[in-house]
Lab assay of single mutants.
Amino acid sequence: QKEELKEKAKEAVKRGNKDKARELLKRAGISEEEAKKIIKKIE
């Protein structure tokens, strides 16, 4: 489940939808700070 949400978040970032990505990562139980780092890494 968590990995699936991370994959979806990756796709969202690639489409330029960072808010959606952050939302998905939060749903995966990832903190706001972690989510920001992950999104930065994907960009």
Rank of each mutant, 00 (worst) to 15 (best):
K10Y: 13
K36W: 14
A12R: 02
K26L: 15
E4Y: 14
K18L: 15
E34H: 05
K14P: 02
E3K: 08
N17H: 11
E11V: 07
I39V: 04
E32I: 07
K14R: 14
K36F: 11
G16L: 04
K40V: 09
K8F: 07
R22I: 15
K20G: 07
G16N: 04
E34W: 05
K37M: 13
E33V: 07
K36E: 15
I42G: 03
A28N: 01
R15Q: 13
A28Y: 05
K37C: 13
A21C: 10
S31M: 05
E43R: 06
E3Q: 09
N17I: 04
E32W: 08
K10L: 10
E34M: 08
E3Y: 08
R15L: 12
L25S: 00
Q1T: 14
E33G: 06
A9Y: 04
K37E: 14
K20E: 15
R27C: 09
K26G: 07
K41W: 14
R15G: 08
L5S: 03
R15V: 08
L5T: 03
K8C: 14
S31D: 09
E11L: 10
K26F: 08
S31K: 04
R27H: 06
K20C: 13
K6N: 05
A35W: 04
L25D: 00
D19Q: 11
K36R: 12
K37F: 09
K14A: 09
K40R: 12
E33Q: 08
I42L: 12
E43W: 11
A35C: 04
K8L: 14
A12N: 03
L24E: 00
R15I: 08
E7H: 07
K8V: 04
K6Y: 15
Q1S: 14
E4V: 11
E34K: 05
G29K: 01
L5W: 10
K6D: 03
K18S: 09
R27Y: 04
A28P: 00
K20H: 11
R15E: 12
L25Y: 04
A9G: 01
E23Q: 08
A12Y: 13
I38S: 01
R22W: 14
R22V: 13
A12W: 13
A21R: 02
K40G: 09
L25T: 00
E43L: 12
L25V: 00
E43H: 05
A35T: 05
E34L: 06
L5E: 03
E34T: 05
D19L: 11
K37R: 13
E11K: 06
L5H: 03
R27E: 12
A12Q: 09
E7I: 09
I38E: 03
K2G: 08
N17W: 12
K18Y: 15
E43V: 08
E3F: 07
I38T: 02
L5Q: 03
K36M: 15
I38K: 01
E34V: 06
L25I: 00
K40W: 15
E3T: 07
L24D: 03
E11A: 09
A9R: 00
E4G: 08
G29Y: 00
K37G: 08
K14F: 11
K40L: 14
R27Q: 13
I38C: 06
I38G: 00
A9P: 01
S31L: 05
A35M: 08
E32S: 07
N17P: 01
K10F: 11
A21E: 01
A21N: 00
A28T: 03
E3V: 06
K18Q: 08
E3G: 07
K18A: 09
I42D: 02
E7D: 07
E43N: 05
G16P: 01
A35G: 03
I30E: 03
K40E: 15
K36C: 12
E34Y: 05
E3S: 07
E32M: 07
K18T: 12
K8W: 10
E7R: 13
K41P: 02
R15K: 10
N17R: 09
E23P: 00
K20L: 15
G16H: 04
K41N: 11
A35L: 06
D19H: 08
D19T: 10
S31I: 03
G16V: 02
A12V: 02
L5F: 07
L24A: 01
L25E: 01
K6Q: 10
I30L: 13
I42T: 05
K8M: 15
K37N: 11
I39R: 01
E4I: 13
K2V: 14
E43D: 05
I42M: 12
R15A: 14
A21W: 06
I30Q: 02
E7G: 05
G29T: 00
K18R: 10
E11Y: 05
D19S: 09
A21Y: 03
L25M: 03
Q1K: 11
V13T: 03
K10G: 05
D19Y: 09
N17D: 15
A28S: 04
I38V: 04
A12T: 03
A35H: 01
A35V: 10
E43P: 03
R22S: 06
A35Y: 04
K18F: 15
G29F: 01
E34D: 09
K14H: 10
I39Q: 01
K20T: 08
E33H: 07
E11T: 06
K20R: 10
G29R: 02
K18E: 06
N17S: 05
E32L: 08
L25R: 02
K41V: 10
L5K: 02
A28D: 00
R22G: 04
K18I: 15
I42S: 04
I42H: 05
A28V: 02
K14Q: 10
V13E: 01
I39F: 05
E33C: 08
L24W: 05
K2F: 15
I42W: 15
K6R: 10
E23T: 05
I38Y: 11
E7L: 11
K36I: 14
A12H: 09
K2C: 14
E4N: 10
E34G: 04
K36Y: 13
E7M: 11
E43F: 09
K26M: 15
E4F: 14
K37Q: 13
V13W: 13
S31R: 04
K2P: 09
A9I: 14
I38R: 01
K18V: 14
A9D: 02
A9T: 03
I38F: 15
A21V: 03
E33S: 09
K18H: 12
